[in-house]
Amino acid sequence: MDSITTTKLSSEEIFDLMKKFITEVIGEEFVEEMDITPESSFTKDLEMDSIEIVSFSEKIKAHFGEQIDFTGWLSSMDLDQLINLNLGMIISYIEECQS
């Protein structure tokens, strides 16, 4: 379990952290074949299904704790928004929560 962090992260640091979580969820062998960028969408580019996004959300919660209501943020989205969700949007959301 990752410890809850309170220090403010830069967008590059958040991006690296997200990449680490994605690798843990879908496995290194798949990530090696991918070019993960902030534009990568979860369902289309990273091919993550909803149960993998649940695991990913768990990791964000464990890392940031109460500071970020990631599930609450996701629950405000409709299906189209969830399908189009990309890494950059999550990075901006986390940055907003930190400011």
Partner: peptide, 13 residues
């Protein structure tokens, strides 16, 4: 299926 069918929208409400 799995629990994610509820996780994102239904359970939070």
């Amino acid at each position: 299926s799995n629990l994610s069918v509820y996780y994102f929208n239904i359970a939070p409400l």
